[in-house]
Design a protein around this nucleic acid. Structure first.
Length: 488
RNA sequence: GCGGAAGUAGCUCACCCGGUAGAGCGACAGCUUCCCAAGCUGUAGGUAGCGGGUUCGAGUCCCGUCUUCCGCUCCA
């Protein structure tokens, strides 16, 4: 058996469509850019990945609880989080170099140059002027400022600028019937804030003690300027995140802990460790203290699938400032250094945030193999198989009567009824048995059971394993437990 | 957003100099009862992404638009 895996991203996308994993959104209307739908097999796989994550967080960790916050949040949330100010910056493009700049960065850079040339006075004037214009959202004035000072593009060295445009990565909409400014609300660009604003509610009602975590899965929306590469970067996507609240000073250890724990979660799905790597951030986001990505070698190269961020007390502090509600926690544990309780503080946060859709793509691209099989008679055969981990495969078991008569379907149906309540099964009696096996390979079903004439005599069936293609005879009565054990 | 390539049946593709669409696989119904696809019979499915133009006539030429992939850019 040989495996051919030459980064065939196209083949994976085709396969995803052909077997009902992923469709482009609104395809009959030419599709909507960077928006995708999950089909029958895709929605099962996605749900299974989500469940596997959820269980690993909320069931296997006694100190992590879940919530399900709304997508709509009070607009002030996004002022507090920094999303309004940091991600709606006016941008300008240089027409010659095609390079895009944040307007404030461009002008500040110019001011810095002036300062190094000893023209501090002029630099200060320009910055003051810029701040005044920014405050008024006067884009024409800002462009004039750039042109009047002949600020050049560092790449092309020209002043050939486009108009200034604003790229707000948050989608907005109106709440209620009155459409004035005050009613503008945003579709959340990240799920994390739903956790932060509920920090006290959860801590008090679930009686959580630090250190503890709050987990959540859900949709988030970003109006990406460029969104591409299939489901890798979508405008509507789903996150699975957990915010872990810790005592200040311990965040470094917890960051290390979660960095390791999250990689172990990935490896628990049996994926080749060499396809993973960490990428530690040098340049940090506005809220971050330490940050790293877990990257996976997709067919399109190593890309981020999950981020672990030490977010300090930035978010809770911001919400405390904006909401004027105290976000503190009373820690009754005794500080050995002082002999007294640690007392009140705003907890630090270590975040783990994984893109569900990216994890889906990871599983799919890791699972996809076009295999050539050397048969006993010297000829070759081929199959497309998805080596999806058993635990998260869309279907766990295919039940296949060898023929559709002689009472075999009846026995198969009985097995179906026995197994159905425990895991997802697929029943089929059409076509040659080999063909049915191949169909199950193509959608990643780990086990196939064939009911044949011998079953009627000794209550044994053939179980066939997807990955090895080996088969063995087992008792009909053992099928359910065998599958259950593998998929739990 | 810029540049490149592409968009014909579910998937992969063909249609030579413009003359009103074909194949393989797949799907469906049946035969075969066959423990690893590609045996037999039959059926369905496309007005060639969408819109406009040139032309007697366009999938084939031109323009626009949408979508996808690749490179650059961006990525809290």
């Amino acid at each position: 058996m040989s495996t051919q895996q030459d980064n065939n991203f196209q083949a994976i996308i085709s396969h995803a469509k052909e077997y009902g994993f992923v469709f482009q959104s609104s395809e009959i209307y030419d599709g909507l850019s960077a928006v995708y739908d999950y089909g029958p097999n895709g929605s099962e796989l996605k749900k299974n990945i989500r469940d596997y994550w959820w269980k690993s967080m909320t069931q296997l960790h006694e100190n992590i609880v879940g919530i399900d916050a709304a997508i709509f949040m009070h607009p002030t949330t996004w002022k507090a989080s920094g999303h309004v100010d940091n991600f709606s910056d006016p941008m300008i493009d240089n027409k010659d170099s095609k390079k895009r700049y944040r307007v404030d960065h461009l002008i500040e850079g110019f001011a810095d140059e002036l300062e190094t040339k000893g023209e501090e006075q002029k630099a200060r004037e320009i910055l003051q002027h810029m701040d005044a214009l920014l405050a008024k959202d006067d884009y024409a004035g800002l462009k004039k400022l750039i042109e009047d000072n002949k600020i050049k593009c560092a790449v092309s060295g020209t002043c050939n600028w486009t108009d200034i445009r604003q790229f707000n990565l948050m989608f907005d909409t109106k709440l209620g019937s009155v459409t004035d400014e005050a009613d503008t609300i945003y579709l959340r660009p990240e799920t994390a804030q739903g956790i932060f604003v509920n920090f006290l509610n959860v801590q008090k009602t679930a009686r959580m003690k630090i250190p503890f975590g709050i987990a959540q899965t859900g949709k988030a929306f970003r109006n990406e300027i460029v969104a591409r590469q299939f489901i890798f970067r979508m405008r509507e996507f789903e996150q699975m995140e957990m915010q872990f609240f810790v005592r200040p000073g311990t965040e470094g250890d917890w960051y290390k802990y979660w960095k390791e724990a999250r990689l172990q979660w990935h490896l628990s799905l049996g994926i080749d460790p060499s396809k993973y790597r960490y990428h530690d951030h040098i340049k940090l986001a506005h809220y971050a203290k330490e940050a790293c990505d877990i990257e996976f070698e997709f067919p399109i190269g190593f890309k981020e699938v999950e981020g672990i961020h030490s977010r300090s007390d930035f978010d809770l502090t911001q919400h405390q400032v904006y909401s004027k509600k105290k976000m503190q926690y009373f820690d009754a544990d005794i500080d050995e250094a002082t002999g007294k309780p640690y007392g009140n503080y705003i907890p630090y946060v270590v975040e783990t945030s994984i893109g569900l859709d990216r994890m889906f793509l990871l599983i799919l691209s890791n699972a996809y193999h076009e295999e050539t099989i050397n048969k006993e008679d010297g000829t070759t055969d081929s199959r497309v198989v998805l080596h999806i981990p058993e635990k998260i495969a869309p279907n766990k078991l295919a039940i296949l009567p060898l023929t559709k008569k002689d009472g075999l379907p009846e026995i198969a149906r009985e097995l179906m009824n026995e197994c159905k309540p425990y895991f997802k099964c697929f029943y089929e009696e059409k076509d040659a048995i080999g063909k049915r096996y191949r169909r199950q390979d193509a959608i990643g079903t780990p086990f196939c059971v064939t009911i044949d004439h011998q079953t009627k005599e000794d209550n044994t069936v053939t179980i066939r394993y997807r990955d090895s293609m080996l088969q063995e005879r087992i008792l009909l009565s053992k099928v359910k437990d065998l599958v259950l054990e593998a998929v739990m």
